[in-house]
Design a protein around this nucleic acid. Sequence first.
DNA 1: CGTTAGCACTCTCCAATCGAGAGTGCTAAC
DNA 2: GTTAGCACTCTCGATTGGAGAGTGCTAACG
Lengths: 345, 345
Amino acid sequence: MTDLTERQKTLLLLIVRDHIETAQPVGSKRLVEHYRLKLSPATIRNEMAALTEMGYLRQPHTSAGRVPTEAGYRFFVSQMMDQAVLPETVQRTISHQFHQSGADMNQWMTLAASILAHQSQGVSVVTAPHIEQVKFKHVELISTQGRQVLMVLVLVGGEVSQQILTLAEPVSQERLSQTAARLNVLLAGLTIDAMTALPARSDALDRDILTLILQDMRRSAERVSGEIYTDGLSNVLTEPEFIEKEEARRALKLFGEPATLKDLLDRTIAGGNVGGLQVLIGGEGVWEELRQCSMVIARYGVPGLATGALGVLGPMRMSYARTIPTVRFVAGLLSDLVNDTITSE
Amino acid sequence: MTDLTERQKTLLLLIVRDHIETAQPVGSKRLVEHYRLKLSPATIRNEMAALTEMGYLRQPHTSAGRVPTEAGYRFFVSQMMDQAVLPETVQRTISHQFHQSGADMNQWMTLAASILAHQSQGVSVVTAPHIEQVKFKHVELISTQGRQVLMVLVLVGGEVSQQILTLAEPVSQERLSQTAARLNVLLAGLTIDAMTALPARSDALDRDILTLILQDMRRSAERVSGEIYTDGLSNVLTEPEFIEKEEARRALKLFGEPATLKDLLDRTIAGGNVGGLQVLIGGEGVWEELRQCSMVIARYGVPGLATGALGVLGPMRMSYARTIPTVRFVAGLLSDLVNDTITSE
DNA sequence: CGTTAGCACTCTCCAATCGAGAGTGCTAAC
DNA sequence: GTTAGCACTCTCGATTGGAGAGTGCTAACG
């Protein structure tokens, strides 16, 4: 890594860049001509041989050009990381889109997924921010008919869940409202732990509802991330490396199943600090299905309060120069938005 | 259509069936051997020539076997329609899965999409049931902090929407609760029309909230169907006809965009009677993107109250014998579920 | 008259072949 | 350290030549 000469470094970067653009193995001659190097092809060949020796390049067959290995990409990305910036015009366009959309989490997520997919020409995933410390805020009980009751539960942070429950016997709306009012006072701002520590309620209805509330809150706490938004699935098929359907199918399948996807996103970036960007190249030897792919992922939100994850999946040959700053920028934007809506609690 | 002899009919059905199974053009010899026909290949050839003449079959090239045309498939499907039944064991398994899942619309939709995709090996789409006559049921106003207020709106039928709004100035939770209570009494059971006919409210807060409620209800009314659930996207790539990536890509793209998808589903089956099944073969000359595909779609729910749509997309060569009864069965199941939760209103 | 055997014909598919082109590694000279 | 020259290797595309499958037609058969 460090034992590369300056010339080797620039050469390696050029090769990776060229291969990302053309999807073709890059040869010495092409390199010289295309980038007007002040060196002869023969010299380049020597350097390329050295880089191959060191594991940064690979030849698909004896006489094709060179192709970056995962190590090669990794080097490229490490250079990119602290340098790539999104053009200001693009930044403004994106910001604009966000500010123009409603103040609705759902829309933000969809928009973020759409922007990521478009900019990167890859498949995007965004998980809704998840409140890390689940706290009760408000409950509402609405009688629908007979024994059916609609329970709407609001958590601190604005997460809302609804559930239809069937009581043992019909209960009037009046009594339901009283129960809700009672619980709202009693439970205001409590965490799960605080609620379980509460003495048992004498009223049977109170007890039942309380149990359901706890159940809902636990379910909410279990989720490491919220709902999943994805976009750009069809981009998978445009990439030349996915002519081999089997590879494409695997990756696509991974992304078609929200559960797996969420798992992947959560696990790779678990506990990751917000703002930090992570680039997974070639599945990092762990995810067989992603052997040919790369992912750029990041966490966003307010640590300790509410965070979510977002990322882009593409071929290993994806345009990092474009994707990395975009992911970073959108993550920042979402963090701000989350911050604005959350900190007021 | 009617001028087919009995023998031609059985032959045509066999050919379509065989081609669906093997994905290969079917020849006269194979047909005789594989189905132990009491005829010689030569006779079959004559009949096949006739069927080709009539437009039910097609030869990809001079000397390949025959392949069904869209008309051929259509004939096959029309035979299938009132005959195909889902094995009882499968029916039970599916019912079981539904009854085991929670009484949650969200879960039902996901489950339905998953079952359809699995059974048919195609891509499934399900739209949540949509209340056709939007009526107010309940509103809840919850102060989050300062001027931010969370409004939860419940419509008759259980549809819930939430929205964060920012008031001109801070308002106490007490005042919000009063406002909500007042509106709940005033608006109970009203339709959009009835609400607009209401005399203007004197209280400014009442007026603002009322406007927002109306806005939400209108938005809800505009949607012909609810949220979209889909599954089995990766199945697209397993089908041999999608080796030609371009076709696959088109169809996939169509399904990747919820908006388009919803439009397609709604338009094809708009006003269709619940229970009726519709089979779109080869895009019916209208949808260019689906030239190679077929869709089996149905509406479910309670007409005039709440209906949704569901369907399966696959290659034109899809297993109708499997897909048609599955779609029909799942539609029936969902109708029952919707009926159970809705009629009690 | 419907059915069947036989046969010539057509077309695809596959494998083998071949030459062009690209790129390399090595050696020797600058 | 850099470069020119050259022999070598390997892929890719076009071409070719069966093999195989399936057809349509004709003539014979019951």
